[in-house]
């Protein structure tokens, strides 16, 4: 099924489609941070409390999709390079957009981003002290939960982290701009009359994802430099370890 050139494209499209869906859900969940600590902490706690098979099942499934997506990409790129051993002396491009030409580059950076992101907020290996952030806000009666709200705000107050996040989300936007419509092309589920609509939907979706993910670090940095006031101001004054 996935051995032919077209088969590998299905694999790219199917795994890509899963990840396209995932980023939306992830973004929608994240945005709850704008509604205050109760919402986001409760949401995070709910996710963490999912039954083991579901929680780890989805985590592994998503990881497998990322790995397959990346691995297939590497195989395809190697084959493609071999198929065109010599470039033209004059290399020109007539129609292909930058985002489609740079899928490999944006994909590679995104892969690094995913690893960093997991280490940063999920495994919390970058700043192990995030583990100790506990709170009753948003927690069920008589329980303490992990203070995701504080962690995210603390995390994005490092300017370089936020810049990296925003740049990565911009690259994701580009990656999706081509990837989203490619899914339909590769799986053959589009026709002439749908082509433009799908292309527009892909662009709209890509920008939506970009905005949805970038808004949080942008707001945090904005508040850090006293340009706006949105979040709880106390979280911007004291050193993190004190809380």
């Amino acid at each position: 099924m996935f051995t032919s050139s077209i088969g590998k494209k299905y694999l790219m499209a199917l795994t890509g489609f899963v990840l396209i869906g995932f980023v939306f859900v992830h973004m929608a969940g994240n945005l709850q941070i704008l509604m205050g600590p109760e919402k986001i902490n409760a949401y995070a706690h709910a996710l963490q409390s999912l039954p083991m098979p579901i929680l780890w099942g989805s985590r592994i499934f998503l990881l497998v999709c990322v790995v397959l997506h990346a691995w297939t990409a590497i195989v395809l790129i190697r084959e493609n390079r071999a198929a065109r051993p010599r470039e033209n002396d004059v290399e020109v491009t007539k129609r292909a957009g930058l985002s489609s030409l740079k899928m490999g580059l944006t994909g590679t950076i995104l892969l690094f981003f995913i690893v960093f992101h997991l280490l940063h907020f999920t495994v919390r290996a970058v700043y192990p002290e995030y583990d100790d952030l506990m709170t009753t806000v948003g927690a069920p009666e008589g329980m303490e939960v992990h203070n995701v709200y504080s962690m995210v705000l603390a995390g994005f107050q490092h300017t370089w982290v936020s810049v990296f996040y925003v740049i990565s989300m911009f690259l994701l936007c580009g990656h999706l701009g081509h990837g989203f419509s490619s899914v339909f092309q590769s799986l053959g589920i589009r026709s002439e009359s749908w082509r433009n609509k799908i292309d527009w939907a892909a662009k709209g979706y890509a920008w939506l994802i970009f905005l949805g993910f970038s808004i949080v670090p942008i707001l945090v940095i904005g508040q850090k430099f006293d340009l706006i006031s949105f979040f709880e101001p106390s979280l911007f004054s004291e050193p993190l370890a004190m809380r």
Partner: peptide
């Protein structure tokens, strides 16, 4: 090589064959 949905082929095609046929083949 493999198709990456660039559309360069169709742009260069002297007979303007559409990418739709690739979608159909897929």
């Amino acid at each position: 090589g493999n198709c990456r949905n660039y559309g360069e082929c169709s742009a260069a095609c002297p007979k303007d064959i559409s990418l739709d046929y690739i979608a159909k083949l897929n």
